[in-house]
């Protein structure tokens, strides 16, 4: 039987172009501005089966974060399509994503509502989220007063405890202190065991990827170098990195 796909990416190209903001003051007399085009992703094709866990590797600037943001709907494709089949999707990455002047408690609601959950559903989950985040009374303080560790703990707790069909994780497997790290790692594993959920993980930790990912995508300078069995892709990647070291 053919397995159901939850993400289909076709001929995906994402460009950063001419999109620099400018001042009228300095540009009013300059008729043509120099247009720089930079392709962050070039003609990417892949399909992800429902319930699978996919790792994404590549050097800095190879387009990993751009890929996640495009799947999350934050960027739109310049060419090609990303089809997530009406699945709900959440992106989990370091920091940000909150209204700094509002309390953590209010931000849980805001994030949840933005992810498409109803107020009632968030209400049911909120106790669990606060408990998991270990923020205790800080949850009622404005987010701008949080340390970066607290920030990440809150972000992780919200995204991990509200169930979205697709979870995109951007290098946040090392959030918070030692205890929280272990706890969040356990939580991720629990999510991964759920066969309905699709997870994409960007990480530089090869051992983590080998442990939890069934397949891995290797991106280099915006191109899809390889997509397949984690062990094989990682060994190819490591060989390649070794070869360009000199």
């Amino acid at each position: 039987m053919k397995k159901e796909h939850s993400i289909i990416v076709k001929n995906l190209t994402v460009k950063y172009k001419t999109m620099k903001s400018f001042k009228l003051k300095t540009n009013i007399f300059r008729i043509s501005r120099k247009r720089e085009v930079f392709e962050a992703l070039k003609d990417i094709n892949f399909e992800v089966e429902k319930g699978s866990v996919i790792g994404i590797i590549g050097q800095n600037g190879s387009g990993k974060t751009t890929l996640l943001k495009t799947i999350a709907g934050i960027f739109s494709p310049d060419v090609g399509t990303v089809d997530i089949k009406n699945n709900s999707v959440a992106l989990l990455s370091i920091g940000l994503g909150f209204k700094p002047e509002l309390s953590g408690y209010e931000n849980i609601y805001l994030s949840g509502l933005l992810l498409g959950f109803s107020k009632e559903k968030i209400k049911r989950k909120i106790k669990e989220i606060i408990e998991f985040s270990e923020l205790e009374e800080f949850i009622y303080k404005p987010v701008k007063t949080y340390s970066s560790g607290m920030h990440s703990k809150l972000a992780f707790s919200i995204t991990a405890l509200l169930d979205t069909d697709i979870l995109l994780i951007d290098e946040v497997l090392s959030v918070g202190d030692v205890n929280f790290k272990a706890k969040s790692y356990e939580k991720i594993k629990e999510i991964i065991r759920d066969e309905k959920k699709t997870v994409l993980i960007v990480s530089h930790s090869m051992s983590t990827l080998k442990e939890i990912c069934t397949k891995t995508i290797w991106l280099d300078k915006g191109k899809l170098m390889d997509f397949g069995d984690t062990e094989k892709v990682i060994s190819k990647y490591e060989n390649y990195m070794e070869s360009i070291k000199k």
């Binding site: 934050i74 994503g97 909150f98 209204k99 933005l114």
Partner: peptide, 11 residues
Amino acid sequence: GNKSIISQKYI
């Protein structure tokens, strides 16, 4: 002004 939200979630 809402940069932090826009760069993380679609709205």
